[in-house]
Computed example of a mutant assay.
Amino acid sequence: MPMTDHFDRLAEKAQLGRDPASVRRRIEHMEHLLEGLFVVPVINRRIGLDVILDALPVAGDAVAAALGGWIIWEARNLGMSKWQMARMAGNVGFDFALGLIPWVGAIPDFFFRSNTMNLKIIKRHLDRHFPESAVVEGEIVKR
């Protein structure tokens, strides 16, 4: 088996495709990692790395903002408008600023989910411009 076939299969398994459906899956996975990794038992609310990283002053917020920036980078590669990109950057920037508040920064971060809002913006764009990448109940629908 040639090495290029092997690398192509690895890239496919890792969802490294540049097609809109692959980008959608990657962004959804990153949003889940940042906003919904596990459920807090008593209040039955999902949290992810975005809230957990608030335990590290400044550095944790910077890492969370960088991961949110990666989502925006993926959106840029989809050809989204500058206005949509600015809205998403504003969401991440506001989330970053909230997280900088010492000790209480995790509380607003718990309720303000910038990555979830950005995912909604990206999904609207994908559904409008790439309807073939639409997902119904976790499966890709081919039209």
Rank of each mutant, 00 (worst) to 15 (best):
R143D: 15
H6E: 05
G60E: 03
R9N: 11
I47R: 03
L16G: 08
R9P: 07
P102A: 02
F110H: 12
P41S: 05
F94T: 12
W103P: 00
R25Y: 08
H6Y: 14
A106T: 11
I122A: 00
I140W: 06
H29R: 12
M88R: 02
H125Q: 05
R128N: 11
D109V: 15
G138A: 05
M3T: 13
V40W: 04
V136A: 04
P57K: 10
P57C: 09
M1D: 00
M88S: 01
I107M: 06
E12W: 11
G48V: 08
G69H: 04
A86T: 11
P131E: 10
E28R: 02
V141Q: 15
D19W: 01
R24F: 00
I107T: 11
A14C: 06
E139N: 11
A89C: 06
I140T: 12
I122S: 08
F38R: 04
R76C: 04
A11W: 06
L10G: 08
M88T: 00
A21H: 07
R124I: 04
R87E: 10
V141T: 13
I47Q: 05
M85C: 09
A75W: 02
M85K: 07
G69L: 05
M3R: 15
M80L: 12
D54H: 15
G68Y: 01
P108D: 08
T116Q: 02
F130A: 02
R24I: 04
K13L: 03
A97C: 12
L37D: 08
V104S: 13
K142Y: 13
G68M: 00
G99S: 13
E74H: 08
G105V: 06
V141D: 12
D8H: 13
P102Y: 01
G99H: 12
V92T: 06
E31I: 01
R26V: 10
V104R: 12
M80F: 09
N118E: 05
A75L: 05
K82M: 11
D8K: 14
